[in-house]
Design a protein around this nucleic acid. Structure first.
Length: 833
DNA sequence: ATACTGAGGATTTTT
DNA sequence: TCCTCAGTAT
């Protein structure tokens, strides 16, 4: 097996023998070791033996290890129930990961299985990495013998590479990401003469993904659904798409599972091998599994039936991408005789936070029901604060954070969790003004950046010349005069001669068909690729990457670019090259990148975390700010429109996830007016606010004193008003929140001074003026050392690019940025241009 | 082949 | 409002 099956840690050179060992022998067994059938004895001196010795000083009875100490009774029950199916319902902060990792350590130390006989699946690489680290902490090096610890996708690839021929692929198949997928679909749509305006490729990609999530092959698509796209051509397009993938020897992410299912179903011998191999199966975040993943798991679990799924139905927030909460709700009937363990003891949050969250989530109907409790203090109440508009919301949160900072709290322990990323901007702008360090988590991913994808495309063409999608991507990047016309010629020839694009190009160069200029350029390009491919054998791959980027003119292209982000892009390219170093070779790196494509974002010191609620799942912070709790924003209007009650319940689970991220302080905000897509809209507080238990909530005024009902000349309360909405009539709204601010707001709402469409525009300009006044005060207060910049200076800012200083007040500058417009920034954030 | 212009669309995200 | 994409003008 030289075409490299990926290992759980792709940075290790794939071992040649990995797949040649019979499945019922452990991959890690030393040569000549006895086969551990049916139950392997602990190897002398092995981890299991050591653990047993530790656990049972003076006794021969192997039952209990030190690692079990400190588990509560339920956790211990979940760890020790090794036989048969187990469902662990683990509420937020109840030690879910701990149970999972301890269970693995337990299985290993009792010698119930070799490391290579345990299948442990997670959703994200991050989760897999963490699990691996924690197991390592418990059992040491033995974790290195666990090749089947990984994400659904990485394990899927591993199986497919081994048996590629059985599903019509070659082992070196490439994995397409969403971008490649869409470009391919665009080609298909064009070939079918389908109007891409009416039937966008992106939509088709989503539909196909949806089918794949549900485990449906083209033939299995329900007739009605297959007809829904492009006047009945959906199913045909799906079929064509799969055919194209096969022709390219490629798969998309969905195929990694779908083809895996097909492989197991159509090849009983292969399935039987895996049944023998996997004595124990563990699944993290089971509530997030989709139908395909469920089917895949069920196939594999039919062997040993020792399957342990850990999840929390209340934290199922990925329904929109195919996750089926049903999978967890149905576990007991899917796996008869299953043991269900509930973990309800929360180790993370204070009583008030838990109480508020529990009361909220109790409004959902379809749930298994858990009641979290903690033995800690009640702590601070959850606060609910109204702001006039989103700018003021950001200002109020900024001030609270500065206050926390003054009290000595670390910014890394503060998070702002938003529903949608458009909400982040307001905070970024505000924090730039304040000079408050922040980091956005989850934004555009490293690998999605154009420059990274371009660089990778070059490397892909070098590594696998038949990668047409990669070739297409970079054939004219940087611009070298090989435009549409030239590409079409190459395409035509490739199709006629049945060759990959780059080979077709090579032949065309030798003919008279191309214009002389094009011919020369293309000849150079083909020659360059030949040269690079030769160098692949002699040069370390990261050096090769550097050479490729330089010689292709790619680096130069960005060096010449004067736009704001060019510097950052060059930095990203350097980072990419750096990240290649630990890998054994180019192939290994590309394999890793196609599945992981995630570079550890260097923890840039003390900074506030800004992220979406979705990406906050699994994390925890001392203080959590939850802005934007308004009807339409959260719960999100589209979720309600498209998914109805199910959508509302998922939004509510999202709210639950948000609150339960907080250890000590949860602070909810809403704004009465918000600009959405450039239009000011008056907003109604989210129904979720009223679903928080009053005993755990305190309604406060925004700290800046300029909130609704607050200060700033006492101006806002009178102008404040809700637009007409069903929420106004809702009975729950007549709640007895009793702070002055809340009551004033209610009075204002009842007095009928709600804004009409026209007046909400008026409100917008008023609020904008209010904003500047506040900002003026702040700036006036913060005059520090005189700035090193003067009016008229040219400056460069990491985020906004080049600009000219138009005013200087202390260390705060007002800069007219060429691209980003006028911004106020702290001078330490800019450099002289 | 590239630069400009106007329309349209704009959640959530992993692999 | 602001960004992306497609189509047109140079």
């Amino acid at each position: 097996m030289t075409a490299s099956g990926p290992l759980a840690d792709p940075r290790k050179q794939p071992r040649d023998d990995e797949f040649d060992i019979p499945f019922d022998l452990p991959a890690t067994a030393p040569a000549g070791a006895p086969a551990p059938a049916p139950i392997p004895a602990p190897r002398p001196g092995g981890i299991a033996a050591r653990a047993q010795a530790l656990a049972n000083p003076g006794r021969g009875e192997p039952s209990r290890g030190v690692y079990l100490d400190g588990l509560n009774p339920e956790q211990r029950e979940a760890v020790e129930a090794t036989d048969g199916p187990v469902l662990v319902l683990a509420g937020a902060g109840t030690g879910k990961t701990r149970v999972l990792t301890t269970r693995i350590a337990h299985i290993l130390s009792l010698g119930l299985a070799w490391p290579s006989q345990i299948l442990a699946v997670t959703f994200t690489n991050k989760a897999a990495r963490e699990m691996k680290e924690r197991i390592h902490a418990m059992v040491g090096e033995e974790v290195e013998g666990m090749p089947w610890l990984g994400t659904f996708h990485s394990i899927g690839v591993r199986m497919l590479r081994r048996h590629a021929e059985l599903v019509g692929l070659k082992s070196g198949f490439t994995i397409l990401d969403t971008d490649d997928q869409i470009r391919l679909l665009k080609q298909l749509l064009r070939a079918e003469n389908i109007d891409e305006k009416r039937w966008p490729a992106r939509l088709l990609a989503n539909i196909i993904d949806g089918w794949k999530n549900r485990g449906l092959s083209p033939q299995q698509v329900p007739a009605g659904e297959g007809a829904a796209f492009a006047n009945g051509r959906g199913q045909k397009l799906y079929t064509d798409y799969q055919a194209r993938l096969k022709a390219l020897n490629a798969v998309d992410f969905g195929d990694l599972l779908l083809e895996g299912i097909r492989l197991l179903r159509e090849n009983p011998d292969v399935l039987a091998d895996y049944h023998r191999r996997f004595r124990y199966i563990l699944v993290d975040e089971y509530q997030d599994t989709n139908v395909a993943q469920y089917l895949w798991l069920r196939l594999l679990a039919q062997g040993s039936r020792n399957v342990c799924c850990v999840g929390d139905d209340d934290q199922s927030i990925y329904g929109w991408r195919g996750a089926e909460v049903d999978n967890i709700l149905r576990f007991e009937s899917d796996f008869p005789g299953a043991k269900v363990v509930r973990l309800e003891r929360n180790y993370r949050s204070t009583g008030h936070i838990l109480g508020a969250a529990a009361h909220l989530i109790a409004h959902n109907e379809g749930r298994l029901g858990k009641t979290l409790f903690s033995e800690g203090e009640n702590g601070e109440k959850v606060t609910v604060t109204g702001a006039w508009d989103s700018q003021e919301e950001a200002r109020a949160i900024g001030e609270e954070i500065e206050a926390l900072q003054r009290e000595g709290h670390a910014l890394t322990q503060v998070a702002i969790l938003v529903r949608a990323s458009f909400q982040m901007r307001e905070f970024e702008d505000r924090f730039v003004t304040l000079g408050l360090n922040y980091r956005v988590i989850g934004g555009p991913r490293f690998y999605e950046r154009a420059e990274i994808r371009d660089a990778l495309a070059y490397l892909r063409v070098i590594a696998s010349p038949a990668d047409d999608l990669a070739f297409e991507r970079i054939v004219n990047v940087p611009k070298r005069g090989l435009g549409d016309a030239a590409l079409r010629q190459i395409h035509d020839h490739a199709r006629a001669a049945q060759l990959p694009l780059i080979e077709a190009a090579r032949e065309l160069v030798g003919s008279e068909e191309l214009k002389p200029k094009v011919r020369l350029t293309l000849r150079d390009l083909v020659a360059s690729f030949d040269r690079w491919r030769e160098q692949m054998a002699t040069l370390p791959h990261h050096e090769l990457a550097e050479i490729v980027l330089d010689e292709s003119g790619y680096t130069e292209m960005w060096q010449k670019d004067r736009s704001a982000d060019a510097a950052g892009r060059l930095e990203n390219l350097k980072e990419l090259v750096r990240s290649m170093e630990p890998f054994e070779n180019l192939i290994g790196f590309l394999e890793h990148i196609s599945l992981v494509m995630d570079v550890d974002s260097g923890n840039g010191g003390d900074a506030v975390n800004i992220m979406t609620l979705h990406s906050a799942k699994g994390l925890e912070f001392d203080t959590v700010f939850l802005p934007g709790w308004e009807e339409g924003v959260f719960p999100n209007q589209r979720a309600l429109d498209e998914q109805g009650r199910a959508g509302l319940e998922e939004e509510r689970r999202l709210a639950y996830v948000g609150i339960t991220r907080a250890r000590r302080r949860a602070k909810v905000f809403f704004a009465s007016n918000r600009r959405i897509h450039g239009l000011w809209q008056s907003a109604v507080p989210s129904r979720f606010l009223d679903e928080l238990s009053e005993k755990d909530v305190e309604v406060t005024e925004s700290r800046g004193g300029s909130g609704w009902g607050g200060g700033q000349g006492g101006g806002y309360a009178g102008r404040y008003g809700y637009g007409p909405s069903r929420f106004d009539q809702a009975e729950t709204f007549g709640s007895s929140y009793s702070t002055p601010g809340w009551q004033r707001a209610q009075n204002a709402a009842k007095s009928g001074s709600g804004f009409s469409e026209g007046r909400s525009r008026y409100a917008a300009s008023e609020s904008a003026r209010g904003g500047r006044i506040i900002e003026g005060e702040l700036i006036a207060k913060s005059t520090g050392a005189p700035s090193r910049f003067a009016i008229g200076d040219r400056v460069f800012h990491q985020k906004f690019g080049y600009g000219e200083v138009s005013s200087v007040e202390g260390n705060k500058l007002t800069v007219q940025f060429d691209k980003a417009g006028e911004k106020k920034v702290v001078d330490s954030f800019v450099d002289a241009a």
